[in-house]
Design a binder for these strands. Structure first.
Lengths: 143, 143
DNA sequence: CTACATGCAAAGAGTTTGCATCCGC
DNA sequence: GCGGATGCAAACTCTTTGCATGTAG
């Protein structure tokens, strides 16, 4: 999802926050990174646009954008923090351990499984951003 | 799974490692912790048995036991590292965000979903230790 | 007695916090 | 001008590494 359509200033103001250049740059960077971006990567992209942004501000802004539900926090393989723009609906990721390919799959594909879990264990799973690891088709054939 | 049945000394020797008191204590602690134990918790349990174990050794031993496939590393919600005794077969966890209850579910419940993923995206998921978060039945009713 | 294991201290990532200054509104 | 936002440095958590000493086999 691109963020061109979303009015960051409006979302911020609605919650009593202020619009700043830094906040726009961080959001732009998360979008540009194109999913699964670590804070450090986001920081680097921001720095390309402006030297005048501090690493601390990037961290603070990422947390704020997450709170505003503009971006999602994901804990990738190895437990590392990543961010990406929130999609209009929940979706999930398949990540290839070999080539790093990142395939999205829809929540619909996941729903029947969640229903079975609920039947079997009475548990309501609220995963909105699952990342599963494995091998993509090409890499699977290759070895 | 209890570890009473597994001969740590044998597994170590087979790979050229030595049996030590520390290694046994760490394994005992992971088992005693009963799943999803953070390194620090494991360290504390070990310390109850013996003052003579260093935190560094706990970390080193956890990595070693993982390499020997005696324990599994799990990245829990929030990206924190946890360990637990390896089960005889893959299984997964449901963790309640509210009360912290940890329910295991079998891999069989998961298989049909993995097959649908494979059909739809040609992806072979190798998740052997998934943790899903949500609400358990009791907590879901409560609010 | 030799090589691997340990303890200690120190370094290292990654992230957060305190506080003075800055600036959006 | 006021109160939130930023930059800077420092702290903090979690984990790993270097090296001298200890100990299993």
């Amino acid at each position: 999802m691109s963020h061109d359509s979303l009015n960051l200033a409006y979302l911020l103001r609605r919650e009593g926050y202020r619009m700043t250049m830094q906040r726009q740059l961080v959001l732009d960077a998360v979008c540009e990174a194109g999913g699964h971006a670590a804070p450090e990567q986001i920081y680097e992209i921001v720095r390309r646009s402006s030297e005048a942004v501090n690493r601390t501000t990037v961290y603070r802004t990422l947390r704020l954008l997450q709170e505003l539900k503009v971006i999602d926090a994901i804990y990738s393989n190895g437990g590392h923090l990543r961010y990406e723009i929130s999609g209009p609906q929940p979706h999930h990721h398949l990540m290839c351990r070999r080539c790093g390919a990142d395939v999205e799959f829809s929540h619909e594909l996941f729903v029947p499984f969640l229903e079975r879990i609920n039947e079997a264990h009475g548990f309501i799973v609220d995963a909105t951003h699952l990342t599963l690891h494995g091998k993509c088709e090409a890499c699977f054939r290759r070895n």
